[in-house]
Measured scan of single mutants.
Amino acid sequence: QVNIAPGSLDKALNQYAAHSGFTLSVDASLTRGKQSNGLHGDYDVESGLQQLLDGSGLQVKPLGNNSWTLEP
């Protein structure tokens, strides 16, 4: 069960990665100043990332080996 409060997208993504045990490689300029609506409930990694990114204009991309990145 994930419980991440709304706020900074950077912070939300870092909390989610730490909670879910995956690696997220992101260029900080992509997420700077963006906000997230947070995340509450049970999600697989990709669904949770998509939910956190909702409205940010960013997309999640798998890199393999439980690693992910973001792209515009």
Rank of each mutant, 00 (worst) to 15 (best):
Q1G: 12
Q1W: 15
Q1I: 14
Q1M: 14
Q1H: 14
V2G: 04
V2Q: 05
V2P: 05
N3H: 14
N3D: 11
N3L: 10
I4L: 04
I4V: 06
A5K: 10
P6E: 05
P6R: 09
G7A: 07
G7C: 12
G7S: 07
S8V: 05
S8H: 06
L9A: 01
L9S: 03
L9C: 04
D10P: 04
D10N: 07
D10E: 13
D10H: 12
K11D: 15
K11T: 12
A12W: 04
A12M: 04
N14V: 13
N14P: 00
N14S: 14
Q15C: 12
Q15S: 09
Y16L: 06
Y16Q: 00
Y16T: 00
A17T: 05
A17I: 07
A17M: 10
A17S: 07
A17V: 07
A18G: 06
H19M: 15
H19A: 14
H19K: 11
H19E: 12
S20T: 10
G21V: 03
G21C: 11
G21H: 08
G21F: 06
G21M: 06
G21Q: 07
F22H: 01
F22G: 02
F22D: 00
F22M: 08
F22Y: 02
F22W: 02
F22L: 08
T23S: 09
T23I: 12
T23A: 07
L24C: 08
L24Q: 01
V26W: 15
V26I: 13
V26A: 09
V26N: 04
D27E: 09
D27S: 08
A28T: 10
A28E: 12
A28S: 11
S29G: 09
L30H: 05
L30S: 03
L30C: 11
T31M: 09
T31I: 14
T31W: 05
T31L: 14
T31R: 00
R32H: 12
G33M: 06
S36N: 02
S36H: 05
N37H: 10
N37Q: 12
G38D: 01
G38L: 03
L39C: 05
L39K: 02
L39Q: 02
L39W: 03
H40M: 12
H40K: 13
H40F: 13
G41L: 03
G41I: 03
Y43C: 07
D44F: 05
D44I: 05
V45C: 08
V45S: 04
V45G: 04
V45L: 08
E46D: 06
E46I: 14
E46S: 08
S47H: 10
G48W: 06
G48T: 04
G48E: 00
G48A: 08
L49I: 07
L49E: 01
L49Y: 01
Q50S: 10
Q50N: 12
Q50Y: 11
Q51I: 15
L52S: 01
L53I: 13
L53Y: 00
L53P: 02
L53H: 00
L53T: 06
D54F: 14
D54G: 09
D54Y: 14
G55F: 05
G55S: 05
G55H: 05
G55D: 03
G55C: 08
G55M: 06
S56A: 07
G57N: 07
G57A: 04
G57H: 05
L58Q: 00
L58Y: 03
L58R: 01
V60Q: 07
V60T: 06
K61C: 10
K61D: 00
P62Y: 15
P62H: 14
L63H: 07
L63C: 11
G64D: 06
G64I: 02
N66Q: 06
N66P: 00
S67N: 11
S67E: 12
W68Y: 14
T69P: 00
L70Y: 02
L70E: 00
L70K: 00
L70R: 04
E71R: 03
E71M: 11
P72I: 12
